[in-house]
Design a protein around this nucleic acid. Sequence first.
DNA 1: GGGCGTTATGTTCAGGCAAACATATCACCG
DNA 2: CGGTGATATGTTTGCCTGAACATAACGCCC
Lengths: 128, 128
Amino acid sequence: MAGKTGGIMADDLRIFLRLWAGDRKFGPGKVELLERIGQEGSISAAGRAMGMSYKRAWGLVEEMNAMFATPLVESLRGGPGGGGARLTETGAEAARQFRLLEARLAEAGAAPLAVLAALMSGNMSGGK
Amino acid sequence: MAGKTGGIMADDLRIFLRLWAGDRKFGPGKVELLERIGQEGSISAAGRAMGMSYKRAWGLVEEMNAMFATPLVESLRGGPGGGGARLTETGAEAARQFRLLEARLAEAGAAPLAVLAALMSGNMSGGK
DNA sequence: GGGCGTTATGTTCAGGCAAACATATCACCG
DNA sequence: CGGTGATATGTTTGCCTGAACATAACGCCC
């Protein structure tokens, strides 16, 4: 996959896909966090794995939960291991659909993306 | 088309497409600036139309010129009207290809985008 | 019941980035 | 030849975000 910031890659040209709903953003960072929460079962572990503080990770989770009709992450305070978090069905679906969107873009946009990459690298084949 | 910030729109869900080449970014803002420079024939006029200072507009132009193999904007200091700027062939092509990329995404990504919009608005039709 | 790990939240501080302000240069034009 | 409008660039200021630090609540487990 792409670099630490996520995204689709073609040559050294990366595409960033970000969804806006009002002032709320939903992009590759939040999606990766979602996926890691699903794997790790913990917000703090997911945040650590991505090199961010728990506070920041939790803030992102709160934002996501607020921008969707149904929470994407369910969390539990106290309990075995001190607590934990897991993806809801909506959370898993949101991440899945975002990745699908990225995949669709990668295939449908390959041609114009290649032209742009060529314009940047100076290696233009198709001309105008 | 989308609001003042640009992007593709579906319901109140907007898609932002941004290209990264190293630390240089190329997104809807720069593309709109390019297009307006092409129309207005002036960096300052284009910047004014987008509500940004000349300095900022010029800085964006400089970035763009630096990230492509060939400059996207040619500028002239002094002369009739005090000077001006115009798009190079590369500049026009870059803007065109970016818009094409957006269009391809809009059609190819309609389905996952609709699902995400439904998950946000609470109006889910296709179920799980 | 005390320790532990996690969720949950407030507060403070510093760095970065954009806005505002300020100049300098250039070439036409009256 | 001075005024004008646009390019080109430097400097400063203010805000906003993220980082760091701090604390509380909670429920298992030993």
